[in-house]
Design a protein around this nucleic acid. Structure first.
Length: 419
RNA sequence: GCGCAGGUGACAGAGUGGUCAAUUGUAAUAGACUGUAAAUCUAUCGCCUUCGGGCUACGGAGGUUCGAAUCCUCCCCUGCGCA
């Protein structure tokens, strides 16, 4: 499909909020898909949003999905060359992105060793490692001496992942080139540069060195990318250190990527995370879309939009659904709690998600969860996914109507008032 | 009536002289989940507590022993088999 002149720019700003950096935009990808932003990306790591069927994606108004290079690559093994492409496999016409595998460098590596998520919360650890501690760590990694939980070894040229099927003996290797080649084969509309996501517990120096690797790899990804029909996004790193974040955003932001993602360790608190956004955003071209990787809680979505984020992705709506967490405009509740046993009401009053419209009640969903019926997880996922998509629509609408800050305040008050 | 086999915390089911308030699983309750090692994980789960400990507990009643859920006696109950 040929793009008209006005569609040449892959991202178009439709409306800018006057009081914040929030904006409504349209993201167009080469295969023809279109997305109104701000939008939430559902996570379908292994080419499937867990529990959902193709028709469910349409029913939940899901406009964009992100799959994962590492998991698909490992999962497909030697069947990768025969892979028909994500749109085919998922039977999905919306926009599909693939993460590069850079997050697994962290999640399977120091995420496990440090037992943290990328937004860490450990107020007790007030001291960050110093230069020599970081140097020592860097040398240990290169020598392959890390905690046994850590199954990744990052080298200057790429990352080695322990192959769990072969004990500790065998490693598989992923680098910028391989990640790009796999992502081209997977055939998403948007692909991401291969990066190294660091841990919130890494010190300044290690974070800086990792950031420099990410920058080198970013340049490589740009040079190696062959397919014009895929958009390539660069990833800003730099942990929660202001000068690193600014440097990374400046360097990545000046490269000719089609869009930009903010990744990474986002610090030790929500405040850190919001600061990271504030430090990075000024260096990212305004006319390119900005994605906040792996972020997801309702408050974070509002704070992100306020600071200029266009797209988010997170497992929260889908994973929490499978665990019984039901999202509503009055916060989240756990449908597996006994208090739901006799509540003959929709999951959310007035909800028009496919599950609620079908007559699902809290009591019925409670029962499905108690019976360990997988249908429970599916129905809860339908609801949450619809809810998140609907919420993003309301956010877009509030920006269009110049009342985003008020809407944010009202929503956060409602959503966080509980308990 | 005789012969076996049993009776353990909400349930299932370990334990057969001390380290047992009693393994484990389920249920229950609470919590967590942020580019999916996750349809998962954690905590609590007899009563009281100044968190040191105290008290009541393994069908019931006695007994042996320094010490019993564990051994003995009697009783009650359940299942299977034979009458």
């Amino acid at each position: 499909m040929l793009l008209s002149k006005e569609e040449e720019s892959m991202f178009q700003i439709v409306k800018k909020d006057k009081r914040t950096l929030a904006r409504v935009g349209t993201l167009t990808v080469p295969h023809g898909g279109r997305l109104e932003t701000p939008a939430f990306t559902m996570v379908g790591t292994r080419a499937k949003v867990i529990t959902l069927e193709p028709e469910d994606l349409i029913k939940t108004k899901t406009g964009i999905i992100i799959s994962n290079t590492y998991h698909l690559w490992r999962g497909l093994g030697d069947k990768l060359p025969q892979f028909k492409g994500l749109h085919d496999v998922m039977q999905y016409d919306g926009i599909i992105a693939t993460d590069s595998g850079g997050f697994q460098v962290f999640s399977l590596g120091f995420g496990r060793e440090h037992e943290v998520s990328k937004v860490g919360f450990f107020p007790e650890s007030n001291s960050t490692p110093g230069f020599f501690s970081d140097l020592f760590l860097q040398i240990r990694i290169w020598l392959g001496i890390t905690n046994s939980r850590n199954s990744v070894r990052v080298m200057p040229w790429g990352a080695y992942f322990k192959d769990e099927n072969y004990g500790d003996k065998k490693f598989v290797f992923l680098d910028a080139e391989k990640s790009i080649r796999i992502q081209e084969k997977l055939g998403a509309d948007i692909i991401l540069a291969f990066d190294e996501c660091t841990s919130p517990r890494h010190g300044y120096w290690y974070t800086k060195w990792a950031m420099n690797r990410t920058h080198r790899w970013a340049k490589l990804c740009l040079e190696l990318k062959a397919r014009p029909k895929q958009l390539l996004y660069g990833i800003v790193q730099g942990g929660a250190f202001e000068d690193l974040r600014r440097e990374s955003a400046r360097i990545i932001g000046s490269m000719p990527f089609d869009g930009f993602a903010i990744g990474g360790s986002l610090g030790n608190s929500k405040e850190d995370m919001y600061k990271v956004l504030e430090w990075s955003m000024p260096y990212l071209p305004e006319d390119k879309s900005r994605h906040l990787l792996g972020i997801g809680q309702i408050r974070d979505i509002f704070e992100g939009v306020q600071r200029g984020v266009d797209t988010f992705d997170c497992v929260i709506p889908t994973r929490e659904a499978r665990h019984g967490g039901i999202w509503t405009y009055d916060g989240r509740y756990d449908v597996t709690k006994g208090s739901n046993k006799n509540i003959e009401a929709p999951l959310l009053e007035g909800c028009v998600c496919p599950a609620c419209v079908d007559g699902l009640t809290r009591a019925k969903l409670y029962e499905l969860f108690k019976n360990k019926d997988r249908e429970g997880g599916r129905l809860a996922t339908l609801h949450n996914v619809y809810f998140f998509n609907e919420l993003m629509g309301k956010i877009r609408q509030s920006i269009m109507e110049d009342r985003f800050p008020e809407y944010k305040e009202e929503m956060l008050k409602r959503i966080e008032k509980k308990k």
